[in-house]
């Protein structure tokens, strides 16, 4: 399945305040913000989630939380993103309202199909290219995997891992509905500009 507009999802980096990062990304046109912070307390995450939800909605964007379905439920954000080491997606789906979004990280066709069967609304496929943002095991899957997965999948594929202005077009042409980035936006000298540049590049190769 392919969406009409290419989606940019910005994942927060641990190094800076998630709300400040999100504001810049949203100004640049990000359609989705994913709150990801592995060492914050439940109380911090909850407060960030409330702020991010308000901010995202002001920009007509979606606010989701990585791993912590508990925080997503308590703060009533738009959804949750689960990795392969998080709560099983089928268990999470039962706790999540039908109108909320469930995203699942996958790296293979099998994982993608399983995610959809479990009720995923999109899959995050990666890592496409080598990346330093997350410590990843295994080799990059490459853009060919996007095509392999996207052609038969009932939900959008969001590509992740080492995506920059230089390769984003390749990713979209391979069949991704959008991309998710951490450092490409968060660590850019001008994150707002970095976000809008990625979106422009994605849109131009959709034409």
């Amino acid at each position: 399945m392919k969406t009409q507009h290419a989606i940019l999802c910005c994942i927060t980096a641990d190094s800076q305040c998630p709300v400040t990062q999100a504001e810049k990304a949203l100004k640049g046109g990000a359609a989705m913000i994913q709150l990801r912070h592995k060492s914050a307390s439940g109380s911090e995450l909850y407060n960030w989630a409330l702020d991010l939800k308000e901010l995202c909605h002001a920009y007509n964007a979606i606010c989701i939380i990585n791993d912590r379905l508990d925080i997503a439920l308590a703060a009533d954000v738009d959804g949750v993103h689960l990795g392969q080491e998080d709560l099983p997606p089928s268990a999470a789906r039962k706790l999540l309202d039908k109108n909320k979004i469930l995203g699942v990280s996958v790296s293979s066709v099998t994982e993608a199909e399983k995610a959809v069967q479990s009720g995923a609304d999109y899959v995050g496929l990666g890592h496409i290219y080598p990346t330093i943002s997350k410590r990843k095991s295994g080799e990059p899957v490459g853009p060919g995997r996007i095509t392999e997965i996207a052609k038969n999948l009932a939900v959008p594929v969001i590509a992740i891992g080492g995506i920059t202005d230089k390769n984003v077009c390749e990713v979209i042409r391979a069949g991704a509905s959008g991309v998710a980035v951490i450092s490409t936006v968060a660590d850019a000298p001008d994150p707002e500009k970095a976000a809008s540049s990625l979106i422009q590049n994605m849109q131009s190769c959709l034409l």
Binding site: E44, Y46, R68, D70, A74, L87, P88, L95
Partner: peptide, 27 residues
């Protein structure tokens, strides 16, 4: 509490700096 609900546990124990208790209980 997401893990507790999913696994069918009886309850949740909230540490000091947890998500606000009243919000967690409502969910």
């Amino acid at each position: 509490f997401d893990v507790a609900l999913a696994a069918g546990a009886d309850g949740v124990h909230f540490p000091e700096n947890s998500c606000p208790l009243d919000k967690a209980l409502a969910a």
